[in-house]
Design a protein around this nucleic acid. Structure first.
Lengths: 127, 127
DNA sequence: GTGGGTGCAAATACTTTGCAACCGA
DNA sequence: TCGGTTGCAAAGTATTTGCACCCAC
């Protein structure tokens, strides 16, 4: 793995993500970071999101539709709406217990606290 | 929603999925169903997978890489390997408890038993 | 100066869709 | 016959990548 060098673009992407509590797409991030770096390209955004994900500084959330990113890596799970694809945080008291239960039934190593629950959010349930 | 009409292609796709306990991609399904229907197109496979998913007859699993499909809709969760993208079944005794816990912390309606856990599978952990 | 980072554009991967022909009820 | 289904190809969406130039160390 090559030596990491500082980049103001990457810093801006990271800052943007930690400032938000929703789960923006690469495109949303691109649009916002462009206010600070008008010439930044979408490719650079993707490259840095992949890099930050590898470093464990952000979380990549794969759902239907485009990937979402989360700048908050403290233990929590995600609820994903099947209809509108909203991603909401879930913070359970029993999360640690759950991870251990899953671990018991699985031959791999569970990455705690990145569990995804699916369903229909309270907005979409009205239809 | 239009009236459903029988199709031998759809039946074959469904049968293929219920015969397997791994979680094939649309392309794998395409390749295999083609042995019975040499002229079937990938578009037809995708259309039927979407339809069967809507009917609740199969489960669509979204991960990194292409979507995976599961012909077994009995309650169970999935473990997804971050490295090789393998999808493995997890059957926990406490699954019902977990769904209820998640439900408590979430304003939407959790679709029980489609929970996804992430991690590194026992094959990939060797590296 | 060296090597990682960037912008741009082209390429890739996966999935969806328009349309005319086809098939099941 | 009627309308859902199919095969084909083109289009669409999301993401990755090659390359020349730029910037951090």
């Amino acid at each position: 793995m090559p030596a990491l060098k500082h980049s103001r673009q990457r810093e801006s992407i990271k800052n943007f993500l930690t400032s938000r509590y929703d789960h923006p797409t690469a495109d949303t991030i691109y649009t916002n970071v462009r206010q600070e770096f008008p010439n930044i390209s979408l490719g650079t955004v993707y490259r840095n999101l992949a890099l930050l994900t590898d470093l464990g500084e952000i979380i990549k959330i794969t759902t239907d539709g485009p990937d979402r990113f989360d700048g908050h890596v403290e233990p929590h799970s995600h609820f994903i709406c099947r209809k509108c694809h909203a991603v909401l945080d879930i913070k359970m008291k029993s999360e640690d217990f759950i991870d251990k239960e899953a671990q018991k039934c699985c031959s791999g190593v569970i990455e705690g606290h990145v569990t995804q629950y699916f369903g229909v959010c309270s907005e979409c349930i009205k239809d």
